[in-house]
Write a protein that binds this DNA or RNA. Sequence first.
DNA 1: CCAGAAGGACGGATCCCTAGACCTTTTCCT
DNA 2: AGGAAAAGGTCTAGGGATCCGTCCTTCTGG
Lengths: 253, 253
Amino acid sequence: MAETAVQREMTGSLEAVFAPVHSQTAFEETVERLGTAIKLGLLTPGTRLPAERELCARLGIARSTLRQALVALGQSGHLHATRGRGGGTFVADPQPPAERPSAEVLAGWRDVCDSRMTVEVGIAVLAAERAQEPMVDVLEELVVAIDDTLDDFPAYRPIDVRFHVGLAELTGNPHLVKLMTETQGAMSNLIHHIAHPPEVLDNANYQHRRLLAAIRLHDEATAARVMTEHLRGTEYVLAGLLPEPKPSLPRGP
Amino acid sequence: MAETAVQREMTGSLEAVFAPVHSQTAFEETVERLGTAIKLGLLTPGTRLPAERELCARLGIARSTLRQALVALGQSGHLHATRGRGGGTFVADPQPPAERPSAEVLAGWRDVCDSRMTVEVGIAVLAAERAQEPMVDVLEELVVAIDDTLDDFPAYRPIDVRFHVGLAELTGNPHLVKLMTETQGAMSNLIHHIAHPPEVLDNANYQHRRLLAAIRLHDEATAARVMTEHLRGTEYVLAGLLPEPKPSLPRGP
DNA sequence: CCAGAAGGACGGATCCCTAGACCTTTTCCT
DNA sequence: AGGAAAAGGTCTAGGGATCCGTCCTTCTGG
């Protein structure tokens, strides 16, 4: 009797166990890591990357593999290299326009939003639990900086990303920082292609302030609520602009 | 001035961008996927795996690669194969004893707990938001089943895992199910090596019930709070039994 | 003006993975 | 009883990614 429930429950998650395994090559992962950092603005346009011989050592890959990745990012216009002493590989300035979201990304935008909701809410709670004043102050400065960019989304977005990644840094956990970075990367294609009127950004930044206030008070419940509200804003906009991809799966109210 | 804050904030997360890239081979990922599913009890002892020729197709890898993984899991005692018609590859019964956590795992146990806290709290909130009655009923049955295993941790743990994975399934998001499974897998080595007196398990299951009650009411705040409390129990036990690994990083109260 | 520091290019060795054919064992069905 | 079928076990040839080392080319700072 109880056994049947256990058995029934099992069947669902087993499909995931036997799902296709997509082993990412070193080349692919490098392109993705550097590409994401650039697109998110973590690597500012004009920045010089470490020299190839040093970078491949840091990444733990062969120089030829690294070069493949750099060439790929060069051809897509995100990097450019200059030869000779004093040269190097630089983040292109200006950056190429964001590519249109692929069909797959578009089809899975709800799942991406769900993942973001999970990660960001979880991190907000943890950050509220253990945030320390000085580090919150740094985020406060970011919020102030954002105030000057409300009518210029390309300027707004990188600081917004840094705010959210900084939130993860409040937890003191490198793994969570990485998770947040990946999450932001997954969102970026979508976010770049929706409208961002100043009033919306202003409200979003207001929520940033409320979030920091809750975190300062170690008020985890409020932090979670504000973050939920904050992200829901994006979801509503996306829901209005994008088609509903999965009418099959039932969802709550 | 604002620019300085932006710049300062950047330096931290940039180290992660240039961190070593560890491309997992298909063989490694297969061993990990199947091994985790077995260790978590998602694949019950005695279960027969799909035939090699079918399984490698499902996993999208060559048969020889799959065999490498199966042989490895066979040598570690998690699988055993019988030849001939009606034969196959079976999950060993009984399973070999859980391996002792490696030094690295032990050193990073706090980070693992943090990740779990983030993922589980985030998922609990999302589940509370959109859970549907019938699916919650299934989890309720699991809780009832757990009541019979409070004095037998090897029996308790697999159902507990299924409860937590089932929570992720409430969100209707396959990606979150995968994330939860990986999270449980990361915890399993640690969890198997701490004491689990019946009173503790009884209390844990009481928290399961309270969690489901909150989810039924779509009470996200309570769900988050109960889940935090639930996981903190494990952390306290671990903190008492394991050495403090990172005195360098400051942490909140 | 030259030494040094950077990107750019090449070739061989190695490892992982794929694809397919074939062998061996066992059992079910006729 | 015997053969077909279904399963794991073995082998080989080949391709592709990666690594390592070496050398070339282009600049610039001293």
